[in-house]
Nucleic acid binder design. Sequence first.
RNA 1: CGGGGGGUAGCGCAGUAGGCAGCGCGCUUGGUUCGGGACCAAGAGGUCGCCGGUUCAAAUCCGGCUCCCCCGACCA
Length: 477
Amino acid sequence: MSKKNSREMDFSAWYNNIVLRAELADYAPVKGCMIIRPYGYGIWENIQSILDKMIKSVGVKNAYFPLFIPESFIHKEAEHLTGFSPELAVVTYGGGKELEEKLVVRPTSETIINAMFSKWIQSFRDLPLLINQWANIVRWEMRTRLFLRTTEFLWQEGHTAHADHTEAQEMTLRILSIYEGFMQSVLAIPIIYGRKSEAQRFPGALETYTIEAMMGDKKSLQAGTSHDLGQNFAKPFDITYQTKENKLEYVWQTSWGVSTRLIGAIVMVHGDDIGLVLPPMIAPIQVVLIPIWKGDEKEKVLQAIHSLEGKFVSNGIYANLPIRFHTDTREEFTPGYKFNEWEMKGVPLRVEIGPRDLKNSTVTIARRDGGERIIVKESKSVEVVISTLEAIQESLFDKAKRFMEDNTYVVDDWKEFKDKKGFILSHWCGEAKCEEDIQKKTNMTIRCIPINGNVEKGKCIQCGKESKMRVVFAKAY
RNA sequence: CGGGGGGUAGCGCAGUAGGCAGCGCGCUUGGUUCGGGACCAAGAGGUCGCCGGUUCAAAUCCGGCUCCCCCGACCA
């Protein structure tokens, strides 16, 4: 990778370069849109399969709702309408005729799902109703970036309805903690979580909770949100149920989601100047096998490779799944070329087998993170591969966590506040005006307000008025 | 929408006193190589973003348009 595109020199160019070169994605012919290529989509499929199980584990079921939403649905909730209006794509023609009612391409599905909830929910016995869908959505953004913000993107959106507010609030937080667990144990990305300020709240929500992760350039990325919708949608969509006591009540709702943006986060948190670094749990290829031979050694080497493949198939279980390995038998490239290519693509482990290994009954194992290379007995190879994958997963998280902690500061002085990069813990009086002024002056926003924030008296970093707790400020994507 | 950069072979780029469209990588064929991005030989590949103007002659000069990328505001 050329120097001008190094992580240090130009983070943004570095990021784009990796996404394109590792073949995660490509620019689409349509402005602001992207093609997710097989390698990038493979990461998404792994995210989906793991997160989907986690979501289902709390009783949520998958369903699918239409891409098109009648325009009138969007108009039913006032804040939702004003929040999303500027970024809607609207279909006005269909089948060659102007439509009687315009159709909005979903920017999120609260409205159309709630229209159905209203029909499906009659009794307290129908509650809670817990639905998730994996879908694509469209938001007409001014400025786009591969994976981080595109006109169309993929996500999961959960929508639930409950009999009372407490239960809905619990659901909101339960999902938040699922997201936290997923980020940390699967993507190896440490996060902080908390409430959003009113200004950053989801349009139509009572409360928005967020998980925020620190990227390699110390900016924050909102990695997922979970909303307590209260009865804000239940009322306009008339979602009522009969209680045991035969009274009619509105339901209490939540919605929550994470998107393909997470792939961008993986790149920006773990990647380096060599290229992508993938946490083993979501890597489409966890181990790449590279045969090395000269002249007539080919056959013997391939034999050894096949025998190793057999061992992976029969004994190679990592994270409760068969190890995903790939053997690179291309003859048109030298081993050195292959080493570089697979490192750029972020494959966690490389196993080399060459004449030297054959002679000693060994294999050579190289780690993508840190580049350490060890020689192990062939008989131990599968078990070492498994334990090394585990070690890499853990080490990536530790490294990212250290980075986040090293760039988190408690700040009470304006000059320091203005100059520091990272997560800044400072006092805020709670006024939207101060939040706005701070953003104008420093480009930083309130990323989150700690949920059980330690009550600590202090003075607002902007206006100096009394403050009850510190909040997290940062520049954000 | 404001500011900056760009559109020439698949990719990355060079190419102004206007005068036959180039380089590196990649690609095809054959051969030799193969433990950190191999080498030799022979090939294929371009309406120079679009429209118009100036000129004997335009990638190059002039006018207009368009698309893309980056930085900001909006936002996941």
